[in-house]
Nucleic acid binder design. Structure first.
Lengths: 151, 151
DNA sequence: GTTACACTTGCGAACATTCGCAGGAGGGAG
DNA sequence: CTCCCTCCTGCGAATGTTCGCAAGTGTAAC
């Protein structure tokens, strides 16, 4: 597949260099599908090819670069930063702060939000993979003491 | 003012205890208005009353508690966590990833989003003080190399 | 007022992440 | 093809934040 060429192109497009490390991190994220922490990515790469072992700081920096190029998205995996290949498909996370459930959200809702924000303020919101916190249906029904009773 | 009583009430309401530390942190945030980092809060309290000096870890835990009780909101102040008194007024931050500008956003837009999410999924989104990242009007007009040109 | 229990605090150590520097590599100009 | 400039990498140290444990304190029940 021409994924590699694509990554290279996207990087050059944004004035960044195309390096082996960036390619490997991008490939790891793309082929693994889900969310991965920086540590997981490093271990994955080290397992695949011991010569490619790179320090965690480089993984972090590489991920930051790919994130700026909007090739990967950063999501929150229980206090730890996790990264996800963006091209997969825009989707969003509704994360319950009580039970930790991660409910998916139909992208259309945020797309229209993005449009509204643009027309109201001119701001170009990046909502490709956005996390929203709150209480899931079950937890907010259970209600317990935390009934969120404000105006 | 009955702020203190209010804080105490809100805490008890949610099954938490009312302690001096929580009161002081809450008061500091409420009276200072803007965003404060954990360190600033600790220094503020230490300056006010040397006897109230508390370790940073306690400040962090206290802030986490107040955040869970939805009395304060956590915002992102350039990589550092900052905290803000919530009762002030719900408002949102549009943060430009290029120039760092922090544009305010009319709360109504997210309120309706919150409603839509609720009716679609039953999820109770907490969007009191939400940060959205992207490119501000000026930066997305300037366009530079990063033209976001993806399919 | 007293007792008991669970929640909190204080402290230090651990954790994830970022920063600064020196050497190395990408990519365009000649 | 070679040179050069700039950006990137690797490494260790520093940063901000969280965790675990033992002692202390709030709250409710008696």
């Amino acid at each position: 597949m021409s994924c590699e060429g694509d990554t290279a192109h996207e990087l050059r497009e944004t004035g960044r260099r195309f390096t082996v490390q960036r390619l490997k991190v991008a490939a790891a994220l793309r082929h693994c599908g889900g969310h991965r922490t920086a540590e997981e990515i490093r271990d994955l790469l080290a397992a695949e090819d011991p010569h490619a072992a790179m320090p965690l700081s480089t993984v972090y920096r590489t991920l930051a670069t790919l994130k700026e190029a909007r090739l990967v998205a950063e999501v929150d995996a229980g206090g730890r930063a996790a990264y996800e290949w963006v091209a997969t498909r825009p989707h969003h996370h509704l994360i319950c702060q009580r039970c930790g459930a991660d409910v998916g959200l139909e992208p259309a809702l945020l797309t229209s939000l993005s449009d509204e924000i643009r027309s109201a303020t001119g701001f170009e919101a990046h909502l490709d993979q956005h996390a929203i916190y709150g209480a899931c249906a079950r937890c907010s029904a259970t209600g317990s003491t935390m009934d969120g009773g404000e105006a």
